[in-house]
Structures are given as structure tokens and as C-alpha cells.
Amino acid sequence: MSAEASDLPLYRSIAADLQTAIERGDFAGGATMPSENELTARYGVSRGTIRQAFAFLRSTGVVSSRRGARRQIQGGPRVQSMTELVSFSRWARSVGEVPSSRTLNARVVPAPALVAEKLGVTEGANVFHTERVRLLGDAPTLIESTYYPEALATLIEAIDLDTQSITDRLGDHGIVFASAEHAIDAVAATPREAELLGLEPGAPLLRTIRRTTDPAGAVLECSIDLSPGESIAFVVRNSLAAGGTSRVSSRSEQ
């Protein structure tokens, strides 16, 4: 970390660096943070600066502390950064979880209107659809409904969808998921979705509609993911210099 180059106060730069490490999965929820002495040596600053950084993290609910005990990372949803494009499986392993899937569907279907728009095909055109419940350990965490161009069907049909990552296996064939656009909103769980996730019908879900392209800009997938709010939280970092985030009416995604 180059804290000196930041416009933030030094303790805030250190706090941001530690929070990034937590979000990346370097520490599990409930784990203890490095000691003040360790962090003083790591960052080359005084104990007072490290204490200020911890105080800031405590004020934002990232860590907790008790007198005479090491600071602990607060438990809660697994955090996924929106600044890095990684598969569910790779992200799960990065936060110390064992990912798996339960495949519900894998077949060619007519493209619904929203999917057709995202994939750049005509409505009703053939696309390949996979629907999986993604699990962390034994806990259902995400319903993943993904549509691919029909040209990828043969490659995806050869993948063990319950144990393997589609993104990683397509990468073995030189198909690279390079860039993604995400639209995120809140919806109520249908009876089927609630049953799959072990929730009550009507429970709030976080819906992410993702359109992913390869390095040349060709569309590779449109995925509609549903997750309980207590399972996964997304973190977005922005600044005055970067204008990539916009607000749109959720009605345009229906």
C-alpha cells in the first residue's frame, strides 16, 4: 500500500487497505486481526496511527474489540467486490468456502425478451440456459440462471455443472470472461425460489442481472442471479474521478 500517495489521512489509507484485505477474503468473519505491533511494522507507522485506523474500522462496523482482546472481524454476509470479475467458485474459495452446485436445468430454450436484448439476439432465438443452485458448504446461497449463445452449448454440455465452474472450463478453451455490466435490485422470493433457498415466500432477495463480454466485446452470457441479503453483500468503490456508476429505474430491467 502506498499510503503516502493517497489524499486520505494516513490512518484512513491504512483502514482502507485493511478493509480491502477483509473484502478479498484474507481474513474470515470472526477471525482476529493482526496485532498493533504487527501492523506498526508492516506499515512503518506509529501505534497511534494504527489505533486510529482500528477506531475508524470499528466505527463503520468492520471490526469489533473488547478490552484486553484482539480486534475481531465482524461476521455477516460474505462480501464480494464489484471491481473484480471472478467466477462464483473462485470467489467462494477465496473466502475459505467450499463451492458446489445443484443443477436444475441445462438445455436450449427460446430467448426471453430481456435475455435477447442482453445477448443481442432476436426474441425467441435459441440460447443455451443453465439454472443452478450454488452452495457454500451445504448452504444454498444463490440461484444462478444463465443464458449463453447457442454456439457455446456443446462446450457447456461437456462440463460437470455440479462440481465445475463454467467460467473456468470455458477459459480452458480460450473463452475469456473479460468485462461485465451489473444491474442490481431487490425482489421478493417466489414460492419456488423460497423453497430452493430455504426461505419464506416473499422474503427479500438481491437480484443481479449480469451481461458479460469477451476481450473483443462479444457477449458471452446473460445471468440473472438471486441471493438472500444475509448471504452475499457487494462492495462498490467509487470516486469523483470515475463516473462508471449510474442509477436507472428498475422498471427498465423487468
Rank of each mutant, 00 (worst) to 15 (best):
Y43H: 07
R71E: 11
V133G: 02
F88E: 00
I159A: 01
V176P: 05
L220G: 00
L135P: 00
T141P: 01
L161G: 02
I159P: 00
G229W: 00
P112L: 12
W91G: 03
A233Y: 06
A186Q: 10
V133Q: 01
R93P: 00
G229Y: 05
T49I: 11
S13R: 05
A242E: 12
A216Q: 08
A216P: 01
G29L: 03
Y43P: 09
E97C: 07
P204R: 11
A111H: 07
A116H: 04
F234W: 14
Q52H: 14
P9I: 08
A241W: 14
L161E: 03
V127C: 02
L104N: 00
Y43Q: 10
L206K: 04
S64Q: 12
D225H: 03
S94D: 14
Q19I: 05
R107N: 10
V248K: 07
R90V: 08
A53W: 02
S145G: 03
R24A: 14
H182L: 06
R71D: 08
G229I: 04
S87M: 10
A106T: 01
I143W: 00
V235I: 14
L199E: 06
G29V: 02
A183I: 05
A113H: 09
E131F: 03
Y43W: 09
H129F: 09
S100P: 08
G120V: 11
V187R: 09
L155A: 08
R93E: 12
R47K: 11
A92F: 00
V63D: 01
A41C: 07
I232D: 02
L85F: 12
E97G: 01
A188F: 04
L206I: 06
S246Y: 12
D214K: 06
G30L: 06
E23Q: 15
A151E: 13
E131W: 02
E157T: 08
S231Q: 12
I209Y: 09
L18G: 04
V219K: 05
F177V: 05
S46D: 06
E4Q: 07
A15H: 04
L155V: 04
F54R: 03
R24C: 12
V115Q: 04
E131M: 13
A178W: 05
G174T: 08
S59A: 15
L57N: 04
S59K: 15
E38P: 07
L10P: 05
E23T: 15
R210G: 06
S246R: 15
V115P: 00
A31P: 02
V127P: 01
D168H: 06
L135N: 02
E195R: 14
I22G: 03
V62A: 14
V63T: 13
R237N: 08
A153M: 08
E97N: 06
L142P: 01
T60F: 10
R211Y: 02
R210H: 05
D162F: 00
D7M: 10
S145K: 05
A111C: 10
R207D: 02
A28M: 13
G171F: 08
G68P: 10
Q19F: 11
D172F: 11
H182P: 01
V236S: 13
L196W: 07
A16Q: 07
T154K: 09
S65H: 15
A5D: 09
R237M: 06
V127A: 01
E181R: 15
T103A: 07
